[in-house]
Write a protein that binds this DNA or RNA. Structure first.
Lengths: 131, 131
DNA sequence: CAGTCATATCGTAGTCGTTCGATATGAGTC
DNA sequence: GACTCATATCGAACGACTACGATATGACTG
């Protein structure tokens, strides 16, 4: 007996009842859901932008390069916290580093982030449910 | 003795050495980092978009309403998993529900998500570091 | 080369998110 | 009103993320 809660491969009973050719329908549905690899990449980027501290670091860099101590001041967080989030941002490719003596200067790799974030802010304002 | 790793309020020693009027500089830096409340809202939205399954659910809804069993098929995940992610999406306000008998139909609340996600995909392609 | 300085990394504790089986709910049907 | 069906919620297991003190690194300075 097929179980409608089956995780993989099996079609839900409800779907089979709903359509004459469930397999064909399933194929189009799966296509609609898009490419999982793309979903992974987008989700990773959004994951990076899902941390308030990282967002604020990006904003602080909007007007140009900063060294770590400036960023540390801008976001008012301990040095190690700032450093590790900067590492995260550079790992993901959103931010670049440049070393100059003992100083490290960070900058934004692609100004497109700001367009993205601005748009996200707009959407958040429109959609967010007040609790 | 001030500790450069101090978390809150205290300015890093390096900053104090760097500027004549560190407090003034700190003020402008803090302003650059933007409004923490906005950062929170944006980060929450991005957090929602930071899960591949949720992204794929949104994409599946791009062409119109679906019931749960269709979505379950589209993303090929167990019913309870799909249901709880749909709950997350509606909680955040990105998706709407409509009940009709035993069926629940889900739809996208604001097509702006897709613009946002498309833009994110573009940025991800441009910035992601190959490992 | 000992010391200081700016930053990076490590280690850990605590929190949060995700998944999914089991079970509840509430609508329809006989 | 017992049964089936579609979906929702619960609960536990597990992993990922976060913050941050402690410590390491590597550059400059006397």
């Amino acid at each position: 007996m097929t179980d409608s809660t089956a995780s993989t491969g099996e079609l839900p009973d409800s779907l089979s009842r709903l359509y004459d050719d469930p397999e064909a329908e399933a194929a189009t549905l799966r296509e609609r859901a898009g490419n999982p690899a793309v979903a992974d990449r987008v989700s990773r980027l959004c994951g990076t932008l899902s941390n308030p501290l990282r967002l604020r670091l990006l904003w602080a860099l909007r007007d140009g390069e900063c060294c770590v101590c400036e960023l540390q001041t801008a976001v008012d967080a301990p040095q190690s916290t700032v450093a590790s989030q900067l590492r995260h941002l550079t790992d993901v490719g959103l931010v670049t580093t440049r070393k100059e003596g003992k100083w490290s200067y960070y900058g934004v790799a692609d100004d497109g982030v700001f367009e993205l974030v601005d748009r996200a802010a707009g959407l958040a304002d429109r959609t967010e449910v007040d609790e």
